[in-house]
């Protein structure tokens, strides 16, 4: 399993390269924008922005990764080589699920923390060069923000998004061509048909709540600090949406394993 995951990282360097490039650009930009970060509040909100941008980046990486994961190996016929190794289809598919569910959240977390630290250091250096104290910046609740980010990544980007990744892998294992369209058009079609036939938008609502994290946060509680450590860190476990999503993800992954067994190279 470890080797299967490593092999995924060898193939898909964008898993860590893309967020690192984005983080590098942000870090550079923050040198230029250092004057705007002098106040603790503005630095904090910029740090949140960094976290948001990096999460968006890795989500995109995850989507494209999943869509190509079981499609690309059939297209270039390398699936015949992988199948000549004593590695079961379930090991392969699970290792491909580990990338978006474990590796990418961890990568996002580490890179975000590193970038925020760089921004903090740059701003502190700037302040001390100008003879001012940077102490106020360091008294921000960094630990709570970091823990909150970690919590958000695990609950939303890993567990809550699991059925999305599973669905993309399933389509990737099934499609003979254009996996991207096959992944998104049927969902859009269901939404449109539902709207026409029943004049409801349950399916669309379900999808958008899934994508927005489905944690239906109380908007009043949402301060500028978007991801504080939640007051009830394990509350998400009691949401049926989580378990329904995980069950769906398991079905999709099982389907992808089965398809990988049956499907010939394209």
């Amino acid at each position: 399993m470890i080797w299967s995951v490593r092999r995924e990282l060898w193939e898909n360097r964008s898993v860590y390269a893309a967020p690192m490039i984005v983080a590098g650009v942000i870090a550079l930009a923050s040198i230029g924008a250092v004057r705007h970060n002098l106040q603790p509040n503005s630095l904090a909100s910029h740090c949140e922005l960094v976290a948001g941008v990096l999460m968006g980046t890795t989500l995109l990486v995850a989507i494209f990764y999943c869509l190509d994961a079981l499609y690309g190996e059939r297209r270039d016929r390398s699936v015949l080589f992988w199948k000549s190794m004593p590695v079961s289809d379930s090991t392969v598919v699970l290792s491909k699920m580990i990338i978006p569910m474990v590796i990418l959240p961890v990568v996002t977390f580490l890179i975000t923390i590193a970038t925020q630290l760089i921004m903090l250091l740059i701003t502190s250096a700037y302040l001390s060069m100008h003879g001012q104290s940077a102490a106020a910046l360091w008294t921000l609740p960094w630990l709570r923000m970091t823990a909150g980010l970690f919590h958000h990544l695990i609950t939303v980007h890993s567990l809550y998004y699991a059925p999305i990744f599973g669905w993309l892998l399933l389509v990737s294992a099934w499609a003979k061509r254009l996996p991207f369209l096959w992944a998104f058009l049927p969902l859009a079609a269901i939404g449109v048909i539902e709207k026409i036939v029943f004049n409801t938008q349950l399916f669309a609502g379900m999808l958008s709540s899934r994508i927005s994290g489905g944690m239906d946060m109380d908007p009043a509680k949402e301060s500028r600090m978007m991801m504080p450590w939640p007051s009830h860190p394990l509350e998400f476990l009691s949401k049926p949406g989580l378990w329904i999503g995980l069950a769906l993800a398991a079905i999709f992954v099982a389907g992808a394993v089965r398809l990988r067994r049956y499907r010939d190279p394209i």
């Binding site: 092999r7 060898w10 193939e11 390398s78 080589f81 992988w82 000549s84």
Partner: peptide, 13 residues
């Protein structure tokens, strides 16, 4: 062990 034909080793590796 199995060799399908010359083109199945993944090109990126």
């Amino acid at each position: 062990a199995y060799i399908a034909d010359v083109a199945v080793l993944p090109r990126w590796i």
